[in-house]
Design a protein around this nucleic acid. Structure first.
Lengths: 359, 359
DNA sequence: GCAGAACTTGAAACCGCTTTGAACAATGAA
DNA sequence: TTCATTGTTCAAAGCGGTTTCAAGTTCTGC
């Protein structure tokens, strides 16, 4: 049933019905009730396609999911982010449009969304250092928010980011305080802005203690389980292995744990691990004492915040650009302990403790 | 720029331009080339909102992502499935609309998508036994495809499923052949159709060998790492622990591995594990010899197939309903070996082999 | 009782595209 | 040359809503 028929059936004009349904003030309460009740009873719902054309608003937010050709991998934090953002969209009557594109087509995909008029705004995922998408969207005049930030990009834009630098410098300091001097960094893909900031945090902390950064202890790559496994093994098998690892996500941390296990090295006693934990719903690092010592920041919450900011920004195009910097607090879990060389000094040598029973 | 202005500028009528752009045959090649070239040059792209209203097609496929209230968890296979399906949508000029809703609102969400006319078809994820959504969508007259199947639902509908029963009976047989008699099953959530079929496959295989199924060895739950950990631990610590585990996903398998490690039990020698592997992009169980012995079936590929079937079904509403049953082949990895009691019989007792170095 | 303000309601234009039906031009057959 | 056919193009009528502008009603205050 369309508006014309519905309004005719209940003896009102399309104008009045439209107003009643959209909450305009110039319709009397009595009429509005009648319209709402009749719509419910007769099962009338306005056709969104028509409303979108008439209003010029798409009532839709766009997300682009680029697939890297080599790895064909989907960012594992994507679904939790979407869950957070999607909740907010629903609440505000917005739909979410997801475009899956090969990564070399990403810029074109944004252009396309803008000119076809199918979205009112977009979210930029996984910004790189000097990310060109920010400039592009500014030029297109399409409202957007970045999940993360992009170093060396001038101009204001909406973003929600974790204080990656602080998180990683704190995590590094924590390990240094435990006596670790050789700390491996298993980081995200080179060029990703968050990875750069994490590396900086790590470097800062080392430098502050006068410790030279060993390039053989720093790795970057896509954060798979296999990547965590391979890099950990490589470092463990080197002439001068680290006594601690800093890992950018819980997924490669699974691989690191496997590598330690394969080498018969105890996690939390012989070797320490600190991870950054995005609080993925299917991979919670919680419990009384979490498995991993971690800097935690919920990516789901970041999704909610991004959505809120973007929706605001669409409603009020003149408003100021907004920024949210989330602090990731360090939670001590079972995966960290004093550096081996320090342990007898502290009277807690656990070299003979059963493997696998962390601390 | 809109069609009216564009067509005026190039000295043609809107009709001809529209036809040229949409590939209709009644426009001459010369004119078509001119239109396409001018559109490129002047940067004209038709407004999709208007096209959708005019054609009555939304050119969009809907996916609903329900969030369970208790767990607030997103199915970890979701993103890979979407990646596969999304690729196909893009290829065919379709958009993907994702609705995030609380699970008790799911039925309403389908109704809403249908009446608002924002999608031409939907994909049903995670069907339960006797899933009411299938009936609902039939009634709504909205084309759909199910990723999975639903037992005890009458009538024809499109589906793409893994042969879960066969996969799990084969996996069970494989373990039985290795001499295992007590096999723990760490399954998906009760009521999920796939979980039921897997349980059946497991039961069938046991029964065929005259082995009674011990209810204390069967668990069902949401497939998180913690769930795998907790259930494995519980079984290991029971009076009569299993010597092998069958696990419904690689994620709880991570938890199982952790539990085994915590108890100092060697994976692949003292205890065997077979998993079902959805071939998640960030969690590949590959390599020369995969970590886990697994029944594998790519969920990404399932996404592609679902998309293809649904798009066909939209184009040809009269066409037959289609079914695809994917066989999951069993790949032997490092996580399985003869049952402990059998090992000396086979002259391969590895009880003293270093832990963690599976076979 | 009446003018003017404050409410309500409706007719019609419009959003930007697609598509029907008609017109016109070019081609071919008779 | 003429008529039928085929090929091309266009004017206008949708698609199903929203919104402007005008008109009709009901209140107020005097």
């Amino acid at each position: 049933m369309n508006l014309k028929e519905f309004s005719h059936r209940i003896g009102l004009s399309p104008t009045t019905v439209s107003r009643a349904l959209n909450g305009y003030p110039e319709v009397s309460e009595r009429t509005r009730r009648k319209v709402l009740e009749s719509a419910e009873r007769l099962g009338y719902t306005p056709n969104s396609r028509a409303a979108r054309l008439a209003t010029g608003r798409a009532m839709t937010i766009g997300h682009i999911l680029p697939l890297s050709k080599e790895h064909e991998m989907v960012n594992p934090i994507f679904s939790d982010f979407i869950a957070g953002a999607g909740e907010q969209y629903s609440r505000s009557g917005y739909d979410l449009s997801l475009s899956v594109v090969r990564d070399e087509d990403e810029a074109e995909a944004y252009r396309d969304l803008a000119t076809r008029g199918v979205v009112d705004g977009v979210v930029i995922h996984g910004p790189k250092v000097e990310d060109p998408r920010i400039r592009l969207l500014g030029d297109l005049g399409l409202p957007f928010v970045v999940h993360g930030r992009s170093s060396r990009v001038h101009g204001e834009y909406n973003w929600v980011d974790v204080n990656n630098r602080r998180a990683f410098s704190r995590a590094t300091e924590f390990l240094l305080d435990l006596g670790h001097r050789r700390i491996g960094l298993i980081n995200g893909l080179d060029g990703m802005d968050f990875a750069t900031r994490r590396l900086n945090g790590y470097s800062d902390a080392l430098e502050a203690r006068g410790i030279a950064r060993d390039p053989e202890l720093v790795f970057s790559g896509e954060m798979t389980e296999n990547y965590g496994f391979a890099t950990t093994l490589q470092m463990l098998d080197s002439r001068n292995p680290p006594t601690a690892f800093l890992i950018s996500s819980i997924i490669p941390a699974m691989g690191a744990r496997r590598a330690l296990h394969d080498r018969g090295i105890g996690l939390g006693d012989e070797v320490s691990v600190v991870i950054h934990d995005d609080d993925l719903s299917y991979f919670r690092n919680d419990g009384d004492v979490p498995i991993f010592t971690a800097t935690r920041s919920s990516v789901r919450e970041a999704g909610r915040l991004c959505a809120d900011i973007l929706l605001d920004s669409i409603r009020d195009a003149q408003g100021e650009r907004r920024h949210v910097l989330l602090e990731a607090d360090l939670t001590v879990g079972q995966s960290t302990g004093p550096a081996p060389a320090m342990r007898h000094l502290l009277g807690r040598d656990q070299a003979d403790a059963p493997r696998g029973l962390a601390r």
